[in-house]
Design a protein around this nucleic acid. Structure first.
Lengths: 214, 214
DNA sequence: AAGAGAAGATACGCTCCGTTTCTTAATTGC
DNA sequence: GCAATTAAGAAACGGAGCGTATCTTCTCTT
């Protein structure tokens, strides 16, 4: 109709925005290339000239709409830093339907390359590489004796987050984050990284645990 | 060809066995109703007369080929019990390709009823309801002060297991199980359920952690 | 002004789901 | 033992959706 024919970045933005909107509206399993094209006011070949498959389009849409957080956290305490860190990780995905990520993971299992890309993006999104610096700062504050601990300990907060979001398809709220940090993560960190005895009492609180799931 | 036409349970077994074999051989995303029928030496309508959708067929195949474990664990120590418990949970899925369960989860997100069924089956498979009795036995032995702790603590071993299997698509081996129990689960349990001081030194071992993933 | 390159529309082949139709064998009831 | 019912098995179909091919038309470059 309109002679105005978009090109380059403008068109690409429109496509990724359309894909994102489609993702939020109908969810991953029902997102079709046809509908994304229609929503962007164009047609399928335009999409396929940029992204060879559906998963890759969706990954691009995720990257386009979930900018990386910056790593500037220092709340003054280990506990505060962890809560903030995990909170950022989860807030990054607010608005993403519960089935989007599992859907992507599945679909991309067919294509190892795409899967690797998604996985690394998940890891980035979860800023797991920021946990170690957090521990290092805690050591500097005198909250911990060392920041030396295994990868599994560092991954722990985000692994638990995934159990809530990916497996159960539930969006995590703030009390849940606090519970995860207080009831699970901090005890493990203190076990591995040591705790000056006098602080142990106030930092660890094995309080009656809330559970946000049914 | 052969006039021998199967019926009832014999036919159903053949179908579920075929579905299972197909699952192991080509994985969930490439399992087709056509191929399952062909492998069972029959045709699609025979399947559809029993299971209305692909996910429901696969769930039936899982149920048919993954019998529930019996709950008879007592190795004499909390640590041993937990390792055995988690080991059984994971051994139950040995032979199940890494993409099967995420695939199912995705596909069944469309159908809440099927999803609920799968989820409850996962929970059964993970015998999470056996963790509390394990703690109770530990209290009886004098290893713990109490068995009172929140659901999230009870779920912890299996949530971590899922991070390895579902998210990363990796099969968990015995050293990994041991590491999960020693480095994460036991510290948390001891934090929440107390530890007689004299035993704390021998039970908790924040050893250099192994990591089975790349 | 001319040509390259990409946009956009349309249609196609393919796969696979779930259904329909029809024939034929097995089971049940008399 | 024989009809009547039920279900097996074969084949084909409609529909959705992916990814591709073809062709026209616009826009940008030179």
């Amino acid at each position: 109709m309109a002679g105005a024919r978009r090109r380059g970045e403008e068109l690409e933005d429109a496509l990724l925005t359309a894909a994102w909107a489609e993702l939020l509206e109908v969810g991953y399993p029902r997102l079709t290339m046809e509908n994304v094209a229609a929503r962007a006011g164009t047609s399928k070949p335009v999409i396929y000239r940029r992204w060879p498959t559906r998963p890759k389009l969706v990954i691009a849409a995720l990257a386009h709409n979930l900018p990386l957080e910056e790593a500037d956290i220092d709340t003054g305490s280990l506990r505060g830093d962890l809560i903030e860190l995990v909170g950022r990780g989860i807030r990054r995905y607010r608005g993403v339907p519960g089935d989007t990520l599992p859907g992507l993971i599945t679909e991309t299992f067919r294509d190892p390359e795409v899967f690797a890309e998604l996985r690394s993006r998940l890891r980035q999104g979860e800023v797991v590489e920021l946990v170690r610096p957090t521990l290092t700062r805690a050591v500097a504050r005198g909250e911990l004796l060392t920041d030396q601990c295994g990868d599994r300990v560092l991954r722990l907060p985000f692994d638990l987050l995934r159990s809530e979001t990916l497996v159960y398809g539930v969006m995590v709220d703030d009390p849940t984050i606090t519970a995860i940090i207080d009831d699970i993560v901090l005890p493990v960190i203190h076990t591995h990284c040591g705790t000056p005895a006098s602080r142990a009492q106030t930092d660890i609180r094995p309080a009656p645990e809330r559970d946000s799931r049914g």
